[in-house]
Design a protein around this nucleic acid. Structure first.
Lengths: 308, 308
DNA sequence: CTCTTTGTTGAATTTTTTTCAGGCACTTAA
DNA sequence: TTAAGTGCCTGAAAAAAATTCAACAAAGAG
C-alpha cells in the first residue's frame, strides 16, 4: 500500500478548490504560485488523471479533483486529530472526546455536564467544537468531531444514535407582542405574523408539518437567519417571531428579553439525540461512554440541557 | 490545518509495528535502516512524543505509536482506495456542469433534456443545484453553479445570456374559483382578490408593470411565499390566487388541482434565458455547449420546459 | 492597443531524505 | 574473558525532491 500522492498534494487540491485560483491557494499555503504549479503537474503525472482543466485563464475542477477534495478533507482532519490526541496522551490525558451541538451555540449546560463527567469517568477530556465547519453529521463522518447532539431522527449508514431528551418547540415573541400572554398559540394566531426561519428546508415534524400545514395557516415570511442567537435578538427587538427549541432559550426567557408560548394546545416536542460513528459504539470506547453519560445526565432531575 | 506528520511517517510506524524491528521494516519499505532511524527521530521530534522506547536491542511500542498505527492503516488505505477510484473515474465523465433554475423546483423536464444531451455530447454530466434558487445570479458569479435558467433580462458585467424560450404568465386559481372558466383575466377582475406574491420586489415586465399598474387595479395582498410549490398548494386550497410562469404549472394544471387563465387579452409572455459567466463562453467550453444545447432543445417541437 | 492578472516553464537554489561509513551497546559463544 | 554478531544510532556526504526566481505567454480589462 504505497500511496501515489502525498499530503501536500491533498492540501494543494483542497486549497485550489477552495480558492478557485492558484495564486490565492499559494498564498493560503504560504508558497509561491510556481511551487503549486509544479506540485499540481506532479500530482497529475502520478495519477495520470487531469485534476483541473485549464480553460483560458481560469481553472476548472474535474470530478476527479472534486472527489479527492472530499477525501483530502477527511484524511487531513483525521490526521491532525490523531496528532493532537497523541500529544495530549503524552501529557497524561488518556482520551479526548470532541462534541458539537447542532445549530445552537448556547453552552450554558456545559459546566454542569463536565462536573458530572468528572464524577463518573476519569481521564476523559471534553472538547467543544464550535465552528460550524460543516454540518454536524458530515463532521462526525469526517472524524472532525466524535459526537453530534442533534434534533430529529438520524438514520445514516455508519452512524448510530442515542436518544437524549425530548424538547418542546416554543413560539417566541417580544414581551410586548399581542400574543405574549397566551399559554399557547394555534395556527390561526400566527397568520400573517412576521416570521423568521432558521432553515431554508422545512424539516419533518417541526412547525411546518405540525402547525402551519395542518391548519393551512401560514405566517408572513420575514427572513431566513441561520444563527439562532441572532434570531433571538431580532425577536427581542420585535422584528419578528420564530419557533425554536426551548432548551437554548432559557437564558433569554429568564432575562425577560423574549417570551415564549407553547406551540399548539398539546405542544410539539422534538427528540434530541447524540450521534456517533457506529465503530465507536464499543462498550469500553470513551466516545460511547461519554454519549451514554450524556444521556444519563439528561435524565437527571436537576441537570440536562435546560439548566440556566 | 497543516499536519505535523507525513505519509512516510505513517508508513514507518506501520512497518515497524508490523515487523517489530527497524531492519525488517527498512527492507519492507525498500530503504536502509539508517533512513528509517532518521525518519523516526524526525517524527518524534515533530510530535514531541516518544513513539518507540529503545530497550537495548529490541523496540518497545508506546501507546502513542499503537494509536497512530490504527490511524495510519485507516488513512493509507483510504487514500489508496481514493486514488484507485479516481483513476477509474477518469474513463467516464470529463466535465460536470452545475445548473440551477430560478424559483421553481419542478424538474419534470430534466430527463428529456438529459436524453437530448447524451445524444449530442459525450462525457458531460449535469448536476442540479437546488440550493441557490432564490438568487441564482450570485450563485453563478460565486461559481457555485455554472448555468442559471432565469426569467427576464439579465444584464450584469461578467455574465452573458442565451435566450431559451418565451413563457406566458398564468393567473392561477382554485378550480372552484369564480373566475375559473375565464379564458383570460383583466385588471378589473382581480381587484380585491387575495393574492400571493413570490417576490417582495416587483420585477419589470411582470404582472405589476403590465397588469396592475396600467389599470390601477390592485388585488388584496395575502402573503409573500418564496416557494412557488407552496404557492400552488395555497392556491389549490383556495387561500388565494397568484401569477406564475406557466411552464412550471403543467403538472398541477393537468391534475386539475388548479386552473389558469391568461393574463390580459393579449397575454403576457416573459423571456427565459440561460445565464453563464462570460469567461465560460468559449466555443469549446462544455458549459457554453450545455447552454447552447439547452437553447436548441427548447426550440424542438416536442421538448422544452413545458413537457409534462 | 497596452497594461494587468494569472498561470507556466526551466534553471538555480534550498530543503529534505537517504545512503554511507563508522560507532556503540548489548548478546552469545568459544 | 573476549571475539564475533546483532541491531540501532550518528554525522557527514550524496541524492532526491520541493521551492524559488526570473522570464514568458495568454487572456481580460480599461
Amino acid at each position: 500500500m504505497k500511496p501515489l500522492l502525498d499530503l501536500r498534494h491533498l492540501q494543494l487540491i483542497q486549497a485550489i478548490i477552495e480558492t478557485g485560483r492558484i495564486t490565492d491557494a499559494a498564498e493560503k499555503l504560504g508558497v509561491t504560485p510556481s511551487a503549486l504549479s509544479h506540485r499540481l503537474r506532479e500530482a497529475e503525472r502520478r495519477l495520470d488523471v487531469p485534476l483541473f482543466t485549464r480553460m483560458h485563464k481560469r481553472l476548472r475542477v474535474t470530478p476527479a479533483a472534486e472527489y479527492l477534495a472530499v477525501v483530502a478533507e477527511r484524511i487531513l482532519s483525521d490526521l491532525s486529530r490523531a496528532e493532537e490526541d497523541v500529544r495530549r496522551m503524552n501529557a497524561g490525558i488518556q482520551h479526548v472526546v470532541r462534541l458539537s451541538v447542532e445549530a445552537y451555540s448556547n453552552y450554558r449546560w456545559l459546566p454542569s455536564f463536565i462536573k458530572f463527567l468528572k464524577t463518573r469517568a476519569e481521564g476523559i477530556d471534553l472538547q467543544i467544537m464550535a465552528g460550524a465547519r460543516s454540518d454536524p453529521l458530515t463532521g462526525v463522518l469526517n472524524r472532525h468531531i466524535d459526537i453530534a447532539v442533534m434534533s430529529g431522527d438520524v438514520a445514516q449508514p455508519g452512524l448510530s444514535t442515542l436518544p437524549l431528551f425530548e424538547d418542546p418547540l416554543l413560539y417566541i415573541m417580544a414581551p410586548s407582542h399581542r400574543l405574549a400572554e397566551r399559554p399557547f398559540v394555534e395556527g390561526s394566531d400566527i397568520v400573517g405574523e412576521p416570521f423568521i426561519t432558521y432553515t431554508k428546508v422545512p424539516e419533518p415534524d417541526r412547525e411546518f408539518a405540525r402547525l402551519f400545514r395542518p391548519t393551512d395557516s401560514y405566517p408572513k415570511w420575514a427572513a431566513t437567519v441561520e444563527l439562532p442567537e441572532a434570531i433571538v435578538e431580532l425577536v427581542a427587538s420585535d422584528l419578528g417571531t420564530s419557533v425554536l427549541s426551548s432548551w437554548a432559550l432559557q437564558t433569554a426567557l429568564a432575562e425577560g428579553r423574549i417570551t415564549g408560548a407553547q406551540v399548539t394546545e398539546d405542544g410539539i416536542t422534538v427528540p434530541w439525540c447524540a450521534v456517533l460513528r457506529t465503530e465507536d459504539m464499543g462498550e469500553d470506547d470513551p466516545i460511547h461512554l461519554v454519549a451514554r453519560l450524556l444521556a444519563e445526565w439528561c435524565s437527571l432531575p436537576d441537570a440536562g440541557f435546560h439548566v440556566t
